Simulated scan of single mutants.
Amino acid sequence: MKKFFTHAALGLALACSALVSTQAMAKSALEQIQDSGKLRVCFDAGYMPFEMKTKDGRFIGFDIDMGKQMARAMGVTFVPVNTAWDGIIPALQTGKCDIIMGGMTITPKRNMKVNFAHPYIVIGQTILIKPSLKGKIKSYKDLNNAKYTIASKLGTTGAQAAKRYIPKAKLQLFDTEADGVLQVANGKADAFVYDMPFNAIYASQHKKQVAFIEKPFTYEPLAWAVRQGDPDFLNFLNNFLRQTRGDGTYKRLYDHWFKSNRWLSQVQ
């Protein structure tokens, strides 16, 4: 009988431990953020105008400002977590940050690993080409030839789009947007496939080095990503987005980062 009670007590203890562990895991990120007093935001600095690093080491951009607004609304401190793009989802999953606010496109593959809030902006893939190809290349279809070399950034929807829509061309992938687009600017690649905002800004700055085919050839909604199984955080994010759009905050930030170039001198 004593042995039976010992086993029963052990089983009960294990069950209680599992319950406590499950409850801890089920704790919403909102509660964890409130407890820590910090909103840790993952992004990959270098994606104009969403997140960039200034000459003096500060992080600026549309996503950065939206993250600061969010932290202010929560009553906590904004903590930037600059993360390499190929490791940004694992960083979120392992708790190194609370949210990804880094210009991430919603894709089915990513959605299997994270949950997305409602899109906060919709963009698409565009093309920068060598000036010598201006007039010859009018769309992505014209690049679908083995004689052309295309550059893009590793692990992005730009790389996916190039593989899917321009499969005959040679594809070179780089760790950063800057490295990829320089291949075209230096004449080492014929085209650079990447997100519309980045390409538009780069083209306006380097008119002699690249030509811009500005019509997007993909549809890409960008959204904030959080860990799976947290409906409370998603509800907060969707309502926060609705509120900022309604009170003018979103438009004010959008106009500053997308319709003005006053900030460019800080990152050049």
Rank of each mutant, 00 (worst) to 15 (best):
T94Q: 08
K259D: 14
K208L: 14
N111V: 14
Y47F: 14
T249M: 06
L19E: 12
A161D: 07
P167T: 07
P221H: 07
Y165W: 10
K208I: 06
D142K: 01
A169N: 06
K2A: 13
V20M: 11
R252W: 09
L173S: 11
S260Y: 02
L14K: 11
R242N: 10
F198D: 07
P167N: 03
L143F: 04
H256F: 14
I123R: 13
A162W: 05
T54W: 00
D230E: 01
N82A: 09
K96V: 00
T218L: 03
G61F: 00
A91L: 10
F233H: 05
T77R: 04
G229Y: 01
K153D: 04
P90T: 05
M70N: 06
G158M: 08
G87T: 14
I127N: 01
F116M: 09
P221V: 09
N235A: 13
Q205C: 09
A200K: 15
F50N: 15
A146H: 09
C42Y: 04
T157W: 09
V76E: 02
D230F: 02
Q93R: 11
D247M: 09
R72F: 08
K27Y: 08
K109F: 04
G57C: 05
F233N: 00
F198K: 10
G135E: 10
R72W: 04
Y148I: 05
T83H: 07
L12F: 09
D63V: 02
A24L: 12
R262L: 13
M70F: 07
Y140G: 01
V184R: 12
G103T: 10
A73C: 09
Q228I: 14
A24Q: 12
N261M: 14
R164P: 08
Q266T: 00
K138M: 13
T157E: 12
K168G: 02
Q32I: 15
A203Y: 06
V193P: 01
P108Q: 01
D230G: 03
V210H: 03
D142C: 04
D65T: 03
G102Y: 02
N239H: 15
S132F: 00
L128R: 13
A15Y: 13
N115R: 09
D255Y: 10
A24C: 08
P119I: 13
V226L: 01
L19C: 12
T244E: 15
W85S: 11
V76L: 00
H206P: 08
G87L: 14
L173R: 09
F212C: 03
A91D: 05
L30N: 05
S36W: 02
N115C: 04
F212T: 00
